[in-house]
């Protein structure tokens, strides 16, 4: 994916020079291994800061919400699906955007890699499918495809679903992926086991709301956890309040989540927050044949009524 860099800069230069966009939203090289920082460039002289590699897991659609400028945005498959969702939900206008599509081969799971090196990581370089990790002077080569974020491993929409430009040839989509093995494992539990499972899952939560804020779907002017009249949810470290937050956050993403993994990537204490949303994604697929953000012309199942909608739960 490194080959995309030159192409991204070339396209961006053209867009800025021709005045088609006011700014480009992309990534610049991070200051620590396995991190890049979302950034904007308004001046075509500064395009050399733009980079692309397997550490661009943050969903850039999050930076589009309610912006008024004409924007060129670098978008991998999941980002493009969230752009579609943004368009459907009137958070951005299609004609304001020039989408620079990135055919994606998956992002590195920074925690998985960090966990392999007890002495910390000084530097990582990447070349096709090879990661070279330097830790205290020792270099180790790893296969990138073994170290992808879980949502990337399970991804079947690596190519952008809408784009105006492409940073490289489309990649082959993964086939025969068992995307919901984790959900089925939880479905098989009894109610008290499920309760305990999620209790353990969120026990390290510090209520920093990184999962919510990294998510392009979470753009409410005031989130329900921040409401004070009425106060839906306590602000302390009470386990039930924390659970209420995670629980409702997930529900608000039902039928909208693209499984981009930004929430899980952002969590400072490594909670697998996708365990909440995956079930809703699976249900949407099973009940409505729906995957979010595939086309700007389709209304989401939860805001449309069809006579064939499943209704067995209504007694």
């Amino acid at each position: 994916m490194l080959g995309y860099i030159d192409k991204i800069r070339e396209i961006s230069k053209r867009l800025l020079d021709e005045g088609r966009v006011d700014m480009i939203i992309g990534f610049r090289k991070g200051t620590i291994p396995m991190m890049n920082e979302p950034c904007f460039v308004k001046n075509s002289g500064e395009l050399s800061t733009l980079v692309w590699d397997s550490n661009c897991g943050i969903n850039l659609a999050n930076y589009l919400t309610d912006r008024k400028e004409k924007i060129g945005i670098v978008a991998k498959g999941c980002d493009s699906r969230n752009i579609v969702t943004h368009i459907i939900e009137n958070k951005i206008k299609r004609e304001k955007l020039v989408i620079i599509g990135i055919p994606c081969k998956g992002m590195i799971d920074k925690r998985k890699v960090a966990g392999m090196f007890e002495n910390g990581i000084d530097d990582i370089t990447e070349e096709d499918n090879i990661l070279r990790v330097k830790s205290r002077g020792v270099e180790t080569s790893l296969k990138k495809s073994d170290l992808l974020q879980e949502n990337c491993e399970l991804c079947i929409h690596r190519n952008p679903v809408i784009y105006d430009e492409l940073a490289g040839p489309l990649v082959e989509e993964q086939k025969d992926v068992d995307r919901y093995a984790d959900v089925r494992r939880i479905e098989a539990m009894t109610a008290p086991e499920k309760w305990e499972y999620f209790k353990d899952l969120i026990s390290p939560c510090i209520r920093c709301y990184a999962c919510r804020n990294a998510c392009p779907l979470c753009y409410c002017p005031t989130c329900f956890v921040d409401e004070s009249r009425p106060q839906w949810c306590g602000k302390g470290q009470d386990e039930i309040d924390t659970r209420t937050f995670h629980f409702l956050r997930a529900y608000h993403c039902a039928g909208r989540c693209t499984d981009c993994g930004a929430c899980e990537r952002a969590c400072p204490v490594g909670i697998k927050v996708r365990q909440f949303t995956s079930k809703l994604n699976k249900d949407c697929l099973d009940m409505f044949g729906w995957e979010a953000g595939l086309s700007p012309d389709q209304r989401p199942p939860l805001d449309t009524y069809k006579p064939a909608d499943p209704g067995d739960f209504i007694k």
Binding site: A191, K194, E196, F198, K279
Partner: peptide
């Protein structure tokens, strides 16, 4: 709801 551990039977819908 049941998935997240709420006991079955506490929630019902009727038309």
């Amino acid at each position: 709801m049941e998935h997240m551990g709420v006991e079955p039977g506490r929630l019902s819908f009727s038309w």
